[in-house]
Design a protein around this nucleic acid. Structure first.
Lengths: 396, 396
DNA sequence: GGGGTGATTTCGAGGCTTGAACTAACATGG
DNA sequence: CCATGTTAGTTCAAGCCTCGAAATCACCCC
């Protein structure tokens, strides 16, 4: 069974190098000394390793800080210009393409409107490919410094290089988005569910920061989620884990667009909430409609909070997370006013033991975080593998 | 932050040694050659490492096998007599203590009846301690060959050396079982939820064997569960993950003994099923009563299958497991006759994509597997740490 | 300018895995 | 019965890696 990692002494270095790089990336600027403490590596090893990283231009100095009495500490940080990542959000109404540096500063963006009736896969792929070229050109970043393209899509993405996408909302049955894109670019590609990319954005830079066991629930028109175990997204056996929207909360309840009944999404997606209140709104007006409903003090809202509590309670009992982040525009709208009520509703359904109400928090990133999160997929892979040697000739 | 594993070159060897040992343990007898293939280690490394393991008496030869033409392969296997593990099942009516060798052959057992009204923690601890001594004495195993004691208890076990146990069924609020036991033995102790120990037994030796992402649902009088991610039990932030019994399936539904409403356990624990059918049975008769109900073709059974399908569907969407194992006496009774119906009910609530009906299977181990599984906790730890150097002087 | 004090670097030691070359242990075929 | 072929397992030098200890650095303070 147990084929794990780290076989040879060289893999050891690769792993330690990646660990150091991550410590530096997430732990802000830090001195060699602090890195030694943070990683558990000896000062000697940190020293030689950072020398390598500096020589590779992957890390740069970032000033220094007095250390009462002794030699000042030299701060190091990941070189944000070492590489760039493109993040793509394939949304219901448009395809957004954005280019970020390693520190997630945005350098360029492009949008392409998609008539929501017609999500022709080839058209979407063309938009993405055009967008990638456009943002690279606009930003003026050298093409060989682009580390890859991350794409967030609705629905489930199957494992494998074809990246088969199944998205009910687009009527995509098995669209080989990976293959379509591969035909037009040689950049590394990372396709994943948009709720997961957004979840990773919250995990890295938002309200999930610093946790290793967390759940991010994204409530928009529908409901998606991200489950974080051991600090990384849990994807299950076929990359389809984390479908929080289809957690059942009422056996035999309201029909869901997935075909089943009683799903969380069938009650608490913005569309479902409005429907339950007897409000008809097309997708452009959903936001205003939901805001109005909130304002009106409708009993549907009270009920929604209770139902959300039921769903979150299930998640708490199954995952015993350190934190639950509620995001997505509808989630933020609901939680913005009713966070305490949501916490209480969750607690009411949960054994006191594993649950602390204040572990439920609101997301901090806006809806644009899908593209941001998609770009983090690129960086995650970069830290994992490419950390050993730089994949492209270093520009001094 | 990225403090992972394997820092020094010695940890590398420790890890590889553990990997090899696990490959040998789970991959049956194997030649050095096969081990090289299975672990990815070079033949040279396997050779020196197995020499060590043989010298430590942790591994023994197990015959040889012709290899058409060449030198015959010498089979190796873990020495079952290298060490022994004690597994304890703290059940509702009795405390069972069993002693196993590394291959999980039982060498001795002892039982202590507990009047179910009175689960005095000190009494339980005394039974356990007496039992440990008794099985060691009875088996004639040298005391220094006993690697530790695993204990499976109902309820939630908090992290930490105190091993605080909260078990509603025993009215244990915060019983420091670890501390109580520590006072009476110096053996390594591993206390965990009984459903989890049983789950690990199914994972290692039962229907979960070979999977890395699995869910084991245990239906007895109540309902427990084990969630397996990456080949090991997922415990969450506070060791309380996997409480499948308190997954909600009916918002605002039947009250559960946990205080909440609509829990899976409030519908599908044997007690709940009988209650829903209007049958009153004390715990000794539950088994017969449920069998009778099954026989009678009661609509409650049909409904139970549907509800189980709803619950399993939630699990599929959240975890996307490779396999779902249904165990526990009630689960086996129900599933024994109605497995196909359970599969169909699950499929009815689940997107076709991530779910294959035949991934739902029945457990293969009886109810005694709690103690067996508790013993595997000891062995798991042994493979992880103690694998580097033998903790006790080797007996040649 | 000298001493004090942490931060970093240098360097030899001890370990690890590996490929390549070797040895062992059988089957076969003449 | 011996030469040959074939596969399994072992030995060994090479190349890396991390670490502790001993410098070396780069400041502050007096």
């Amino acid at each position: 069974m147990g084929t794990s990692e780290r076989r040879t002494v060289r893999d050891l270095r690769r792993g330690n190098r990646a660990m150091l790089l991550r410590a530096l990336y997430f732990g802000g600027p830090a001195s060699r000394n602090e890195l030694s403490g943070a990683t558990g590596l000896s000062a000697a090893t940190v020293s030689t390793m950072t020398a390598d990283l500096l020589a590779d231009n992957l890390v740069v100095e970032a000033g220094q800080v007095d250390s009462d009495g002794g030699r000042p500490r030299v701060l190091l940080r990941v070189n944000p210009a070492y590489g760039y990542a493109v993040g793509v959000d394939v949304g219901e109404t448009r395809v957004s393409v954005e280019l970020f540096d390693l520190e997630m500063k945005e350098h360029a963006r492009a949008h392409y409107v998609v008539r929501s009736a017609r999500h022709d896969p080839e058209l979407v792929a063309r938009h993405i490919l055009t967008g990638v070229e456009a943002v690279i050109a606009e930003s003026g970043v050298p093409a060989e410094r682009v580390l890859g393209v991350g794409v967030g899509v609705p629905g489930i993405v199957e494992p494998g290089p074809g990246a088969l996408v199944r998205a009910k909302t687009f009527a995509w049955e098995a669209v080989p988005l990976g293959t379509l894109l591969r035909a037009g670019t040689s950049l590394p590609l990372y396709v994943d569910n948009g709720a997961k990319t957004m979840g990773q954005a919250e995990l890295w830079f938002g309200s999930g920061r610093g946790t290793r066991e967390a759940i991010i629930v994204l409530m928009g028109s529908g409901i998606g989620g991200t489950i974080v175990t051991g600090g990384t997204i849990y994807r299950g056996a076929g990359r389809a884990a984390g479908e929080v929207g289809h957690l059942k909360i009422v056996a035999g309840g309201r029909p869901c667009r997935c075909g089943a009944r009683g799903c969380l999404e069938a009650y608490l997606g913005a569309e479902a909430i409005l429907d339950r209140a007897g409000i008809v709104a097309d997708s452009a007006d959903e936001e205003a409609a939901l805001a109005g409903l909130l304002e009106s003090g409708s009993p549907v809202i009270r009920e929604s909070v209770d139902l959300l509590g039921v769903g979150l309670s299930s998640l708490v009992h199954l995952f015993n997370p350190e934190r639950i982040v509620i995001g997505g525009w509808a989630g933020l709208m609901l939680g913005g006013r009713l966070l305490d009520e949501i916490r209480a509703a969750t607690a009411a359904n949960t054994l006191a033991q594993p649950f602390r109400p204040d572990s439920v928090v609101l997301g901090r990133l806006g809806p644009d975080a899908v593209a941001l999160g998609a770009a983090t997929l690129v960086i995650e892979a970069f830290f994992g593998d490419a950390a050993l040697r730089d994949p492209v000739p270093t520009i001094a």
